[in-house]
Design a protein around this nucleic acid. Structure first.
Lengths: 158, 158
DNA sequence: CAAATAAGTCAACATGACTGACGTATTTTT
DNA sequence: AAAAATACGTCAGTCATGTTGACTTATTTG
């Protein structure tokens, strides 16, 4: 009982997670670079694409960054016509965010790269693996945020 | 055949991966903050801990950062006695890196947090899930780097 | 002895986070 | 109708972590 603060160390999964995530995000980086964008732009573009008409404050909530951090990249995305803003119909203080056609196309190219990597991995694995993987990633999320994330990802696949 | 550049979009896994990785790295951040360290310090400490006596150039290769980036955080870790350097016995140009007791202890605390999160997830899943997850993460790594990563992670678990 | 290698260091810069304060338009509450 | 709250934007300054390129020092190798 005295020495039983032991936790099986999971060095293998810790390190695999690190390398996997690095390469997973590395794919889009190449395309983003060409436009002078970074990962911050990717995240904003992605979540606006997936949540058309999202409010700025909800986007901040999802990304868990500050208004200032978002402001910079959002401004660039708007200036370069990847994202457009429209005043809310009900509440005109809001600037609802949408991807433009240019933004949608670019976002699709990025998602395709990442989906390809995922699909190639899943194809090499036993049937039903994708459900296991989905479950694992879901359980790795903070318990009190899971339902919120579940709500977010259960969107039409376009 | 003309429209067959279609790739099943994996928005669910893309987003789950994003949120899972964020929370996975969020655990250590709290402890790191208390010491004025960041994720860069964590990575260096981790890989030195897991590869005692590693050469600086090999560490650069693993982390894929520049000498200058490494230099800054490594200097802090050495100054604050988390890592020590010893000249190589065969080649005295080398400064082989080891964690001190202080460094080892701290690193263990961090790994424990991450292992706990992983274990809690795996426990809720069907038997054999950890092998599926391991396989998935492995296949998400760039093909030409997999063997190198495999070599890295196949270390004694202490 | 010359060349290559391992490591450290300097200066300068970019990105993307942060804080805190303040402005403006609009809606809600009193 | 005035006051308070809200949604959003913006300014100024800071920090962490990454980059490049050039240069030094110690040591090993050809």
């Amino acid at each position: 009982m005295s020495k039983k603060d032991s936790v099986s160390p999971r060095f293998d999964l810790i390190e695999l997670f690190f390398f996997a995530y690095r390469d997973f995000t590395g794919d889009p980086d190449v395309l983003l670079d060409e436009l002078g964008f970074g990962r911050a732009h990717h995240r904003v573009l992605h979540f606006v694409h997936r949540n058309p008409g999202i409010r700025v404050s909800d986007l901040l909530e999802i990304l868990k960054i500050t208004k200032q951090s978002l402001g910079r990249v959002l401004k660039q995305l708007v200036d370069e016509d990847f994202i457009c803003q429209e005043p809310g119909a009900l509440d005109r203080r809001q600037r609802l965010l949408y991807t433009t056609e240019k933004g949608t196309d670019f976002c699709t190219r990025l998602s395709k790269l990442q989906s390809q990597r995922i699909n190639k991995a899943i194809e090499l694995m036993p049937d039903g693996s994708d459900e296991i993987v989905r479950q694992f990633l879901y359980l790795m999320i903070d318990e009190n945020e899971r339902s919120e994330v579940a709500r977010l990802i259960s969107k039409q696949t376009d």
